[in-house]
Design a protein around this nucleic acid. Sequence first.
DNA 1: TAGGCCATCTGGTCCT
DNA 2: AGGACCAGATGGCCTA
Length: 217
Amino acid sequence: MPCCETGSCALHNCKNALFSFFLLAASHLTRFYPEDMADRLSSVERTPSDAAYSNHEKSLGFQKRKGKLKRGQPGFKSESLAKKQKENRRVKANDRERNRMHNLNSALDALRSVLPTFPDDAKLTKIETLRFAHNYIWALTETLQIADQYLVAPRQRDMKEPFFQSSSACLPSLDSPSSVCSSEWETAGYSPSSDNSPSLSPNDALQRAPHTKSWLY
DNA sequence: TAGGCCATCTGGTCCT
DNA sequence: AGGACCAGATGGCCTA
């Protein structure tokens, strides 16, 4: 049973909005498919010169290189024309790359705008934004699961510590995404399983090092 | 001044 | 062939 009838409560809305932005940013950042891993890992170990060399081998097909086209032969382009075309392609590619990075930065800005931050915090860096979004999504998911547990078995909950007295006041609202529930994070004491960084739940780390950004990791 | 972060350029690779 | 994506290189700016 969901924590609300329609799935449109503030908690669900906030989580869904963040998740959408995160997917957008992530899709811009990398096309990461598990089946792609082996190829990508093996390519990491190759130096650019190695890659260039293997590509050169491919183009040659281990056969003798064809002779250079000479003036008058079909397909021959004057060197200055070829150079001009190459420069033109490079300028266009640079322009596309710049736009691509601008789009990526826009997606990151959109993601930053839905993450709760302290008012006096400096702008999150790119890596901080991604790590914090990861932790934030994890925390919201945990909160949803806890809320679901209480609503599925309301009679089983400890009446000395009613859920709606202790937690409802701190559910995140759409108007103020920074009003994030903290009680469960503080008591949970565990963190999302993350690659190789010692990932902490935001408030767990916040207790250890207030007024620093260490809670991002 | 060293180190972190960022924007940009560039060449390689993959895909359509 | 051309576009998208990626990673390395480089230089500028900022901060401790």
